[in-house]
Design a binder for these strands. Structure first.
Lengths: 111, 111
DNA sequence: ATTCATACATCGTTATACGATGTATAAACT
DNA sequence: AGTTTATACATCGTATAACGATGTATGAAT
């Protein structure tokens, strides 16, 4: 595909990375935020999110930290490493160029 | 995902359907056209394209026709059925709403 | 006391992208 | 004449991923 094969599937990685570039979040929060921002259109499933987080962590893009909330509840916060920030930018770049190409093909298809 | 899981992988189906909504094409031509229109960024691999074509055909979206070129060469042309036209519109719609949602999440991520 | 939302996680199924590989023909080059 | 290259179809196996199902545990609300 010329594009990193990771791309499409990578839309998930992209979203995770971009959300975390805003602020640290814990897993469940990422799910809720995606729901909120997409007006319920985009729901990460836990079976999708957690493996994706672990994979990004293994690649060195994320650091993790257990924090105890005011209620004594444990939450595992994820944040970007410097490599993660780079990956976020690269990932966004790829997204724009991919959608650009698809849209180019689409628009020429009815001209 | 709320979205048809077919979506992303469906970007391939989308492109095939939209290209064929313009005119009938044979497999190899679809590959060449995508290359040309994307300035070589988007290359369908044959191992990807042909199974995808067969699948779309099996779903009733495509009709096929062997035609003999001026040089006596056989080419299998694909064209859209009425159901295929509907699928093309639906697929495009889904693409726009999906990219819209992703972009919404992305843009809010640095506001 | 019980249900619900929060919060983590893993496993198995299903599907798919695509590299590799194979066949065949015509054109172009050497 | 012989060889390569482009055209043109196709299948199979591998790797991977999305996610439904499932499980555990806690605090809040009913």
């Amino acid at each position: 595909m010329g594009f990193d094969r990771e791309l499409l599937k990578g839309s998930i990685a992209l979203l995770i990375l971009k959300l975390l570039s805003e602020r640290d979040m814990y897993g469940y929060e990422i799910i809720q935020e995606s729901l909120r921002r997409s007006h319920d259109a985009f729901e990460f499933k836990e079976g999708t999110l957690y493996p994706a987080l672990h994979q990004l962590h293994k690649r060195g893009y994320l650091r993790t930290e257990w924090r105890t909330g005011g209620n004594g509840k444990q939450r595992k916060y994820y944040g970007l490493t410097p490599a993660g920030r780079k990956a976020a930018r690269r990932s966004e770049q790829e997204w724009f160029s991919f959608t650009g190409v698809v849209n180019a093909i689409l628009s020429k298809a009815h001209s």
